[in-house]
Amino acid sequence: MLARSALRTARSAGAAARNATSKTASRSASSSSSTAEGAAPWTANALPVGASAFAIGTVAWYYHLYGRNVDAMTPAEEGLHPTQYPWEHAKWHKTFDHQALRRGFQVYQEVCASCHSLERIPYRALVGNIMTVDEAKALAEENEYDTEPNDQGEIEKRPGKLSDYLPSPYKNDEAARAANNGALPPDLSLMVKARHGGCNYIFSLLTGYPEEPPAGAVVQEGLNFNPYFPGTGIAMARVLYDDLVEYDDGTTASTSQMAKDVVEFLNWAAEPEMDDRKKMGWKVLSVSAVLFALSIWVKRYKWAPIKSRKIAYNPPIRSPILDKLPKPNQKS
């Protein structure tokens, strides 16, 4: 209906335009006797054509000056973009592999924890995800923490509890820099979220150390060549070597296996809510699917009598008297 009315208006508009053109044509025809010839002189269009050319010119000049990106950095300074790996836990219908988390935590403890802190993760977060309550308690008790001040105002040491956070390897950033030749090993709690490329970047960084830098590349004193690190010079040397850790579950501890496990663990550390988030997503999907189906059935129920009704027009019965009257235009 709407389309038909739109067509009708378009047709009438076209008719109006046709009328207008025919009118102007007749007018110009009537005035053509005074001017020399029908063709308009070029000066008539000079202003709009010139303005258009100026507009195009300014846009082109602007693009020439400012439009393009200026890439001042060389590819080496940008760093090699990490490859996309098919992470199982990143799929939207998959959860963390908690065996892998456990292995990854082992790698963190045995390898990374000597330099990198994980200060936003408490022991209680490990319970149920990576280890049992008793294991976590035993782990917490291995470390000493400050107590509240006692009656004399002195702060004593006590064994760790589940509510304590994982200990950092250094007292503060300055101590960390001093111990690492001026380079600060960053805290790994949110590292997967904090770096462009996330899991792919960390996995590539850990496994991407070439045996020797490519020919001609200059590596500064105290740095190591890693193509994935912006600038390619990274203070951290390669740490993961085959069979560096011995997994409890007998998994072969190849370099890439350890890197994969520790990256999945770090992803858990950064996003411990991921499993719950995906569960909530499925709840939303299923509830809205039920409601959607319900709404379709309700709509059909409500509309069924309206759509299936039939409107009948029964004209009134003509009265025979009127037929007998003479029609005004007809001669009887």
Binding site: A76, P86, G208, G216
Partner: peptide, 30 residues
């Protein structure tokens, strides 16, 4: 001394090799 380095060429090769190996590697890892 060299007037250039092979970092860019190395990047292209590493990019190609890792992208090619990525699915095979993750099917082998646990």
């Amino acid at each position: 001394k060299a007037s250039e380095d092979c970092v860019e060429e190395f990047f292209h090769l590493a990019h190609c090799a890792t992208a090619c190996a990525a699915p095979k590697l993750f099917s082998q890892l646990k």
